[in-house]
Nucleic acid binder design. Structure first.
Lengths: 94, 94
DNA sequence: TTAATTTGGTTTATAATATAAACTAGTTTA
DNA sequence: TAAACTAGTTTATATTATAAACCAAATTAA
């Protein structure tokens, strides 16, 4: 039987964010924005959702005088991502 | 760069329908309903969307006196599914 | 025989989600 | 010092998913 997919990850932008962070571990908000081609608003909303789920943690600091938000994937986030991949494989026949 | 995912397929229930039809080629509405554990209403809506996209075709007939809806995947549907799988692989690091 | 129940759905209303527009706060440039 | 830019957040709107309500015919039960 097909497993219920984690709704937090079954979203194109959130999945893209997680996919990126799986590779690089941590990244600036602006970097993620460029890579995903998302609007800042949309990205901000989705980052907050992932943060609330503790799939990523978010640190707000400064790079010189300019605000800088750094996102990093958590252990919980990695596990959720890996489970999502396994669950999806059944749908995709992989 | 990550590709935009086909929004018609990036839906848990529609993906489950397509995944099932990829395996069996054609199936009754009621069979799909049992397998996916969807409500009839939800299934009806999603089947119609897939039909409108020509990813499946739907034949309404009778099994004896009882109405019977048969869904079958189309060539276009198979191709869309396969492309979706390939596109998703990049997100999933497969 | 007619009144409930079941089967096989569709339509429609509502809840959830995604997205973009508008806004805030501070910085740099002209 | 005012315009424009950077780095975001908040909020309003559009889209989507889902469930509830409904319909028609068949079956079963009284």
């Amino acid at each position: 039987m097909l497993k219920k997919l984690d709704p937090l990850l079954h979203s194109e932008l959130r999945l893209a964010i997680m996919s990126l962070l799986i590779s690089v571990e941590k990244a600036e908000f602006t970097f993620i924005k460029e890579k995903t081609e998302a609007t800042a608003g949309n990205l901000s909303v989705q980052v907050t959702k992932l943060e609330n789920a503790e799939y990523i943690n978010v640190e707000k600091g400064y790079k010189g005088k300019i605000p800088q938000t750094i996102c990093a994937i958590t252990k919980k986030g990695i596990e959720a991502f890996e489970k999502y991949v396994e669950d999806l494989k059944d749908y995709l026949k992989l």
